[in-house]
Design a protein around this nucleic acid. Structure first.
Lengths: 229, 229
DNA sequence: CCAAGAATGTTAATTTCTTTACATTTGGGC
DNA sequence: GCCCAAATGTAAAGAAATTAACATTCTTGG
């Protein structure tokens, strides 16, 4: 999704000072993956950071019951796996190449060396982790207290937009439903309500937002008092 | 709650090497708070790490609608606020003293100095943040895919136990309901089901677990396939 | 152009949780 | 010991989501 995993404004690599970017890439090993190839599987205990150079990576979480949750799509410049570098936890998601993909991979040992040499990198890692943590805790909070249409609106505002139209979102309802952890029926209903309220127009595989800033205000107004007593 | 905020096994301060503990405390300023006094309020932008020396701190999240969520209780040796040191995000919870409480407070500037001087501290911070992040992402995942009784069982196993009996949990159903983000009625029902299944005995303000290891196995068996198809 | 797959729209039955309400049990303070 | 607040047990109505099913619309590959 994206709300969890790909937060463009928080991209680990993009936010690095150029000098550190170069240092990091110098320690990396390039890899290629064909369309549909699994790069990491949930439960893997490998530790490595990957920077996407070309192509895209689908992030998903397929339970043993076959249902897919928390889907996301990462693009060139995005990174994944950074969390495995710092703790011995297994990978939490499946990462699958979408299209032919080139990534640069930094393994744990190499990264550790860099970390020892560069306090600035350590600082960066810390603030990145802290931001992400803050974000996920907020998300968890939202999940518990906000009604679905509001959560949906928040997700839409955070969704990566089309290149030529900032308010056109290329996403299927099924993907959105996965991202929010609800059924497609529930999502469809919430989308209908937002449409009837005039916030967006539904298309085939895309959504057109009408007024981002007013929608933000609407969310803020609805994010506090749950009903209107 | 504790699933979010107080993870005893991951305590930031407790896990620090003794030498670093002393360095940290040397930089700290002691504070006293009376019972019921608010130490930090949600939305505060102050940055500081606090180590509890004596007493306890209630962590809560009171929405403007008055409902209280994600409640937790921290004890001596626990820390809070560590996340505010590393990002400019506001505090996410309310912290209120429970009983007369003494805490040692390290503000951001002092901590930054320590961080520059000690790569080991930076390492520790990074792995603490990464673990916590991993934990919260798992929690979010659980929240979406696991039925309430299973989530409840997981929460119970992670709950801090009584001092003299590792399987006696001192917690009210209301607190558990807050921790899981459900109503007390729903929680009561889930507890009844676990009781009928023989996993625990309900008491007044306490719960007695019967067999931790078998319960863990039961959770693992139920955490994958949601129904039985 | 048109067939097939993909995506959306919608309905109905069911389940789960919430809200509200009230009764009962427990334990501590006076 | 008794009273009262706190905690638990439970019931009923309603809201919201799920599952399952089916119809319709859109896109695209041949």
């Amino acid at each position: 999704m994206s709300r969890i995993l790909s937060a463009p404004q928080l991209g680990f690599f993009k936010m690095l000072p150029a000098a550190l970017q170069h240092v990091l890439l110098a320690a990396a090993t390039p890899q290629r993956h064909m369309d549909g190839e699994t790069i990491h599987r949930r439960g893997d205990t490998t530790s490595s950071l990957s920077v996407i150079r070309e192509g895209a990576v689908v992030v998903s979480n397929v339970g043993m019951d076959g249902r897919e949750l928390a889907l996301g799509l990462l693009h060139a410049g995005d990174t994944f796996g950074e969390f495995t570098l710092f703790s011995d936890m297994p990978r939490q998601f499946d990462f699958v190449a979408s299209g032919d993909t080139r990534i640069d991979v930094v393994d744990r040992e190499k990264f550790d060396v860099l970390l020892d040499d560069s306090p600035a990198l350590a600082r960066h890692v810390i603030s990145h982790l802290a931001s992400r943590l803050h974000q996920v805790v907020e998300l968890l909070d939202d999940e518990r207290r906000l009604p679905l249409p509001v959560r949906l609106a928040k997700t839409l505002l955070a969704w990566p937009a089309d290149l030529d139209d900032a308010d056109k979102l290329r996403v299927t309802q099924q993907n959105l439903a996965n991202a929010l952890g609800v059924s497609r029926v529930a999502l469809s209903g919430a989308l209908r309500r937002l449409t009837e309220a005039g916030w967006l127009t539904r298309g085939y595989g895309e959504l057109q937002l009408h007024d981002r800033s007013r929608l933000e205000a609407w969310i803020a107004a609805n994010a506090q008092l749950v009903p209107t007593p």
